[in-house]
Design a protein around this nucleic acid. Sequence first.
DNA 1: CTCCAGGATAAAC
DNA 2: GTTTATCATGGA
Length: 309
Amino acid sequence: MRNRDVKKDQAPIEDYLALGDKLYLEGDTLILDGVKKSNFDLMDTFFCGQCFRWTYDDKSNTFTGIAFEKVLKLEQKEDHLVFHCSKEDFNNIWKNYFDLEVDYEAIKEELKKDNILKKAIEFAPGIRLLKQELFETAISFIISSNSNIKRIRKNILDLSTNLGQHIIDEHYAFPTALAIAQADSSIIDLCKIGYRADYIKKASQAIVEKDTFHLGHYSSLPYEEAKNELMQLRGVGPKVADCIILFSGISMNAFPTDVWVKRVMENLYIKKEVTQSYVQKYGQERFGKLAGYAQQYLFYYALKKNIGV
DNA sequence: CTCCAGGATAAAC
DNA sequence: GTTTATCATGGA
């Protein structure tokens, strides 16, 4: 950063009451002032397993990601974030993508009444739940099944490079449903998705045929109905459906239960071995409307602390 | 070499 | 309705 005093003298172009922050224009960047790692940590947010298209360059201390057909570069400073984007893109895309109008301090305060969650939250208090594009989320988590995060990231990068629209430099948008539905199998095979290649192609074809595959439709449905409808897609079972519901922002009541969440819940809460569906319902009932947030804090905590292994 | 990875599917119980 | 073998690929 150049000179904080200069920007402080300017009138903020917008207030963000949820964060208690203000947005300033500075050259061709935007400054979101008053953000500390304790309430928004880019590293933990991008690498806690909810998304797969962000990278970090430690030489420039810059995060680069692609979403909604836009490339964004970000920097985290001591008390502010630097957005390399226009005011229009910030307001139209990133403000919602980063969930900036939701008060995470209130959410964390509520969840920290639970002593176990308190430890998980204090381990990574800066995680925010991204509102990701519905189709990208669906395909990404179909690919995630029985895989690992490193490989998922490469699969999605390859898929975007081969089938997505070129944006700038080496960056490509996530492919459209039509692009995957019509893609030649030999091109998808280049991405080394394995047996999931058939899943994403059939799911994409079904999505192209549907006129209801959009956020508004699923958000208008009760959780169970949205989940059942998503599970009609090839490659979407209960866990993947919950990931789609949570990470695209359909409902924050979802509690995706993978091996790590199952382990941490069995070890720290339930104190015995149970089924996956038992853990999923238990989490939803225990954490209610905040189940999705609780899940992500617990998942990351379990993953990094190797709980239950 | 075997085992596992943010699971889903079809088939068997 | 609930368990179980199988699925393609890469890393440990």
